[in-house]
Structures are given as structure tokens and as C-alpha cells.
Design a protein around this nucleic acid. Sequence first.
DNA 1: CACCCGCGATACCTCACAGCTATGGGCCCC
DNA 2: GGGGCCCATAGCTGTGAGGTATCGCGGGTG
Lengths: 300, 300
Amino acid sequence: MEARHLRYALAVAEHQHFGRAAASLGIAQPSLSRQIADLEREVGERLFDRTPAGVFPTAAGAAFLAPARRALCEMASAVAEAGRAARGETGRLRLGFIGSALLRFLPSVLTPFRRDHPGVRLELREMSTARGSAALLGGELDLVIGRGAPRGPGAEHLVSVTVGRDDLVAVVGKGHPYAGLRTVTAAQLARQHLIVASADDEPAVRAGLRALLGADASVLDTATEARDLRTIIGLAGCGVGVGLGPSGMRAAGRSDTWFCAVTPRTPLPDLVMSYRADDRSPVLAAFLAEARRRGDDLPG
Amino acid sequence: MEARHLRYALAVAEHQHFGRAAASLGIAQPSLSRQIADLEREVGERLFDRTPAGVFPTAAGAAFLAPARRALCEMASAVAEAGRAARGETGRLRLGFIGSALLRFLPSVLTPFRRDHPGVRLELREMSTARGSAALLGGELDLVIGRGAPRGPGAEHLVSVTVGRDDLVAVVGKGHPYAGLRTVTAAQLARQHLIVASADDEPAVRAGLRALLGADASVLDTATEARDLRTIIGLAGCGVGVGLGPSGMRAAGRSDTWFCAVTPRTPLPDLVMSYRADDRSPVLAAFLAEARRRGDDLPG
DNA sequence: CACCCGCGATACCTCACAGCTATGGGCCCC
DNA sequence: GGGGCCCATAGCTGTGAGGTATCGCGGGTG
């Protein structure tokens, strides 16, 4: 049994007339008669009563037509769904990102992407750069935004694109001696208790800090580690010490905090977007296209 | 696009290998390659990634396969549903009947029919013989059980089968003078206030009563008319008068009522089952078969 | 590095069958 | 009783599904 048989049966049911049904299908009446006869033979039941008053479905015919209609409908939607999926209008995007991406990059991309691709299920998970690249290689994520391009085994199967740059800034509570300063030096930082991102989570950030502090880098061994920017800001705000983070962090400042630039100007590892090189997902492609469009106005 | 294309695509997805998929379909590999290529051209999207590691659905392919599976499923169920409908296992039977059929005929037919045809929706409506045959001719019912074969315009399009016979019996309250009598005569009835079925509803019954009462038939003009047997029994039970109805009515007797046979023995019009002669519904056929099987043990 | 092997694509043939025209047969209506 | 409408049947034709043979490519191996 082929879809053709269903289409023909539905046409006969609709027109209640073989001749007109055949005309509507663009075929000759005998061809239609034959196909319906074949269908009835295959189903094993007479599907239509040919009466002088017209052609009407039998009980079996009526029971046949309902699922037949649904079957053709499903076939049409199979094509439609394939097209939508290929255009990236439906599907799923599993995105892992570090907190600073929420301040700097994601808002300008996610908003238009959501608007243009309402059928896509976005699964957003905040996580460290290290966990993110592992999950990406493990196939649990489709896209990762972290700090510094992924390294290590498997990284050659990934493509990485820089989507943002940040300088290091310090954050202190309003009562701290540095509050009010426009800049602080590496030497000034080394004399304070520091609050920094976890070395395991953000190895590239930690390496940058070590380079900045030079001989004083050992202070990092006793620094307070926090797993996200809000915690760094919060701890600094209540006087625990001097928080260090990306300049994008300024956007998350509160009334009890003060931000200082760091001299010498210290660029953090790039904010990098990574995905599997062999990933042909149209949703991913659509997201990348949007990111490229929005990424142009980022600081280069 | 034909069902064949869907079957082939599903086979490729299942085996992740053109050669094995073709073998499972009983065709050669190049034929399968060609059909898949045709399908992809028609859908307008590549549905499978041919990699050295195997053949995997693209995003579009995955989106296509789900409704494709449903479509084939619907096609299979179309055949299955047609078969069930043709065997009378599914469908609808709209049955109109008079109250006495519930006492005499329907219980022995409905119980096994329900058991053997659980998928059939039975629409049972108690109604008078007159309304029943009108509804049958109007196409609002498929089967009617009434008293006396339908007459009048259109009746020649109906087939009627006798399914039960009743003699006329009288019913009185326990306090009535006739209570305790085995039989009452026509003359005795004529001296009492009578409770009978409505002349409009059951003309055949009324004609029988007139014949029985002969010259005294005028007492019927002032008789109480009731529209169903339970009402006749109830009114007689509380002393309103002498109820008249079919002998099957005895089964609905209560502790406050007494039944008398009528002499001379007065057969009521037959309990008759009617349906449209041109009705080819398998459900109807199945019901008629059941009725024939159970009808044999009826009083003839 | 060259060779081989496995797999999908391509080329070309062939035959089955979907569709066509012509015609038959049943039923209703005039 | 004759004519017309409608579906079924008969026989022919061309398209395309399926077949065989072969190519091209990528990956593993001696």
C-alpha cells in the first residue's frame, strides 16, 4: 500500500464520484477505479459502496479514511519539520557558559536569537570553563562560552571563536582603603587578601594573575576562591578582601562596592565560544550566525 | 513522496548502513541509494550524513523520521480499523425500543453482544413504536424494536423480524377485587377503569384492545394513558384501575401488584425488530446474527 | 607509502505497473 | 424501450523502481 492509494481513496470520498475524483487528481477514471480496487483487495474489505446515487464509504471505508487522512497529514508534516529543522527553526541548543558571559556577550545574542527562533529549545547551564569544555567534548553540550580556548586532548576537534575581551579589574567594599581609587597596582594587590576565581575552574585566568603579580604570586595560594562573579563581588562588598575579575563585572556592581582598574592594564584570557568542528546542527549554525552579527560591536 | 520512501528512510536510520538496510528491505543497495536521494531531493534537505563510521540522520533527518514513523503507523492502523469495522467489532449501533423489549428480548441479546463486540458504541433509546419507525426511516436509528411491523409510507424499505410474542395480561393492585384471580374476561375489564398504552404511541396494541372489548371498546376513550409499562404497573399498583399490557410485564411486577391472564387469550401484536433493507452496516449484521442465535428460544 | 577493502554513488538496463484509450454492462430516467 | 450516466474491464504504453556492473573515496594495513 502506498500513499497514492490513500490520496485516491480520500478523493473518492470527497467527490462521491469516480469520474470527478479522477479529474481532481489529474488522472483518468479507469486508473482511479483500478487503484481503488487494488486498495480494497489489499485491505481485504470493500471500502466504497458504488450506488446509482453516488459513491459512499462503507463502514470499513469510513474507518479506513480517518487514519488515512492522519497518515497523509503526518507525511506532510514530516517534510515541513525537516525543513524547519534544517533552517534551525526547531531543535535544541545546549549551551554552557561562565558567569561573565551573562554580563558581556550572551544578552546581545540570546535576545534576537530567541525572537528569530522561537521553536528552538535553549538549554542554558552556567558552569566553569573547565567543566564546559569537557561536557562539549563528551557530547553533553553543543556550545560552550568560557575564558581561554580549550586545550588538552580532543581540543583539536573543537572550533573556538573569540567573542569578547576583558581587562582585569579589582572590586572592593565602599569602606576599603582602595575605595575611590581609579586604579590599583599589582604591588597594592599583593598586599591585600585577594578573592579570585577557582584555579581548577578557570586555569587561564589564574595564569594571567600569576603573570601580573610576578614575584608576589604566592599570595594567590592563600587567596579566597569563589566559583562565580556574584560571589566575588559579594565577598568584596562586605569587606572580606579585594576581588579580582573581568571588567565586564562592573555591570554587576552594587551600591556597596567600588571598582578599580588594574595597572599595568592586564587583559584576561579572551571570552571564547567553542563548538565541535564536525557539528552540522543548523541550530548551532543559526546561533553562530547571530553571534557573528552581534559580535562585531564587541571590543576587539 | 510515497510510503516507500518513508519505509526506506526508516530502514536506513535503523541500520545506519545502506547495504544492510537494503538487504533488510529485500532490494539492492543502489536502488535504496537512489530512493533516498530522490526523497532528499523532494524534501529539499539532506536527511542522512554518510560518514565512514556509518550513516546518521542529520537534524532535518531526525525531524523527518519521527512523523514518518507516525505516518506508517497510521497507514497500518487504517487497514486494521477497516478490518475491525468490517467485522462489526467497532462502530455504532443506534437502537430504539419499547419498554417491553427490555423485559423480553433485549437482555438475552445485549449481554452476549456487548461481550463479543466491546468496541461497538451502543446508543440505546427507549421510545414508542411509532416514534421508533419514524426515526429509523429518517436515518436517526439503525434498528428499532417495537410492537407490530411498521406500516405506512417508507415501510417497504424496511425489513422486519418477529422476535417475541406476548399475550395481553391485566395488572391490579393487591387491594383490587380482581387480585387473586387467575384470569379476567373482557366483560370484567370493560367494567373497570383501564390503564393502557397511548394510542398514538402503540396503535397496533390499541387495535388489539378494541377487538377484544368489542362493543365495550368505548371504555377505552376514557381510559388512562401511560407512556411506559412501569407507569402502567405503578398506577395499577396504587389502585387507579386495571392496567393492560404484554405478558412480559409480569417480570416487572412488585409486591403490591397482581397479574391476571385475559380470557379469551389475546395475543398482542408481535414484538418486531426492524432495520433498513439497504443498511449494510457490519455492526447491524453482527447484532442481527446474535439476535437470530438468541431468538430461537423465544415463544413462537 | 602503496595497496586493499568496504561502502555509497553512478551508469545503464529491464520489466512491472500506473495511467491511457476504448469499450462493455448495469441502472435510472425520460 | 431507448438514451445517457457511471463504474468496470480490456489492452496498450511509458515511466520509474529495481537489478547488475562499476566507479570513487576514505581508512586501515603490510
